[in-house]
Amino acid sequence: MFNYTFRWNQALNALPQMLDGALVTLQIALLSMVIGVAVAVALTLFRLSGNRVLRAIAATWVELARNTPALFQIYMAHFGLGAFGIHLSPYASLLAGIAFNNAGYLAENFRGALKAIPDTQTRAARSLGMPAGQAFRLIVMPQMFRVAFLPATNQMVWAILMTSLGVTVGMNTDLAGITQELNARSFRTFEFFAIAAVIYYVIAKAVTLAAQAFAWRMFRY
């Protein structure tokens, strides 16, 4: 059927290298999620605050992150910041781009989750004598995380898939980058990228399952 000899051996021999790359991919995704959640909580607080400037910052961030491509955001971090004399390495710009994207989407998730928490919770906490900050931190936020956890899991999978974009700014240590380097050396494009696809699939599924197990352990009543 095909006038082509598949050389899976060559690709399978490179498997250890690619798995090292998969670790880097996972590391970037996790870091971007940690930064993303931290910034998203800050953005959520900005949105709730009475300060108009803070609200505008949060709204701009969320709309920019959600209405431009992730690849554009990574380009902006890599090429655009050069105008300010900030020259990021591919790793840093990839991380910055994904974290920016995550923060925007997660802030929107958190906002939706906040809507699901009844006002009476805050009022009850306040009438027990808690200051506003404490009520938010101890009563509202845990519930917010519970509701937002599953959408955040999806975002984590998205973050893993987005790390593959690093190859367009010259990243060569993550899974996509290593695959591309191996491909450039041997031109066994199909074999190498098929194996990379399988690894990405396994990582995505493993993360989803782990998150479900975690949610079952943590959030069950």
Binding site: F2, Y4, L161, A176, T189, A194, A197, Y200, Y201, A204
Partner: peptide, 22 residues
Amino acid sequence: IFRSVPLLIQLVLGNAFQAIAR
């Protein structure tokens, strides 16, 4: 599979496949 593999990888694979299948 289409939702769990990065789109970039899918595009490269698709392109390689169409070349292999002529």
